[in-house]
Design a protein around this nucleic acid. Structure first.
Lengths: 228, 228
DNA sequence: TACACAAAGTGACTATTGTCACAAATAAGC
DNA sequence: GCTTATTTGTGACAATAGTCACTTTGTGTA
């Protein structure tokens, strides 16, 4: 793999967005290329965390299983995303799993390789700090939303989080089943279904052949900030 | 202020735990010493975030007000804690407020000063990365707990989070009113009251003159991981 | 000590959301 | 193209926790 290729893959907001070619090829040099099939666990909850992943292609789900069996989806990752850096940095075990939800490729970087990269390219640390700051912000917003709002506004928020910015026809980044949406938005599959049906009636979303689309982005945003 | 003093103040797990004297005095040199009274807002939600705080003495509450008025307490900070680094790093506005809950002193560091410190002491970035990793971990655990468990286990978790490790007589780090506990644990004041009373009956906690104490740490831990 | 204000305790009722149990509709594999 | 599995749709019911409306108990201060 060449630095150019990685540069193309890596998304705009990614950790590596403004890396120069020297940095990128250094990263590639020190990393291992890995392939996953749909359903493969790229990172496993409970394992010690001695490496970090950079998602190159495909999509993955970050989720955790609580001690009572409840599954919580924390986020979905796109190409360019860094995964598993938390356990790598603080030395703790992995508190969440990352599962490929389609055929996926990634670059694995071990702790020592990562430390070398940080040492050699000193801007790297600052970039990673920014990425992590945004991640904390997202987590806090998630806590806020979960706590302060009832199911309607909450589902609206999670749908908007899945929505693409310049989305033609309001298509979402991922076509999730209603049970998955439930695990992401923190509500039961049945409840998701009822809420979606209601919104479908009002022309806010459409649910054709399992695929949810946002028809009225504006009202959905209003709902997301509604009083209840 | 002298580097030694800061060294003494700063807690074990703090960002500055293993800073040498040169680093500490550099930080002091570039920061401003500020005092707050009980109730003062040290950081205000909605403001642009151009500085960071290091709590030197006193205690503070990090909380956010949702658009529907709901107040959510994210965490309580002790001396040594870094506050407000998220907005500083990612350039966004402050998503939470930090309020002094007792007379408090802090060291304010502006963005430029902070960048100088990072530049000069390159271990600093790595340390901050660790701190932030732990913070993401805490936030994720909070999301997990809020989602997967009912009020009982949840309150147990938040009480344990407030408990001191070698706590003589199970005293908590902070004596919170039941309404505050409610905002922290995400449940109504009344519900907190009922749950606490029930546990008090069973000898798991005691609630004397508004102060909660953990009498049976072991069972409370069990409750925190119960099936419901 | 008395007054005022804030915090805690408690009962009754309500609301929201989850659970269970199916039927219907898709999708996937052979 | 048929069979099987996995989603989706929906009704009835249960449960958990919030709200309201008070009373009671503390706490701090003039």
């Amino acid at each position: 793999m060449k630095a150019e290729e990685l540069a193309n893959i890596v998304a705009e907001h990614s950790l590596f967005a403004d890396c120069d070619e020297a940095e990128l090829s250094d990263i590639i040099l020190r990393g291992h290329f890995v392939q996953y099939e749909k359903g493969d666990e790229m990172i496993m909850q409970g394992d010690p965390g001695n490496s970090l992943l950079i998602l190159l292609s495909g999509n993955a789900r970050t989720s955790m299983i609580a001690s009572n069996g409840h599954e919580i989806v924390l986020d979905y990752a796109e190409p360019g995303q860094v995964l598993g850096e938390i356990a790598l940095l603080d030395g703790g075990e992995r508190t969440a799993s990352v599962t490929a939800i389609e055929p996926t490729t990634a670059l694995t970087i071990t702790r020592s390789a990562f430390e070398e990269i940080l040492q050699k390219h000193k801007n790297m640390a600052l970039r990673l700090l920014k990425v992590m700051a945004t991640r904390i912000r997202t987590a806090n917003t998630m806590i806020e939303g979960d706590r302060a709002y009832t199911s309607g506004p909450r589902l609206a928020r999670y749908l908007l989080r899945l929505s693409v910015v310049g989305a033609e026809e309001g298509r979402l980044k991922l076509d999730l089943s209603q049970s998955e949406l439930g695990n992401f938005a923190g509500m039961s599959r049945e409840h998701i279904n009822r809420q979606l049906s209601a919104w479908s009636e009002d022309g806010i979303v459409s649910v054709e052949s399992g695929k949810v689309r946002i028809l009225n982005h504006a009202t959905l945003s209003n709902i997301a900030n509604a009083d209840s």
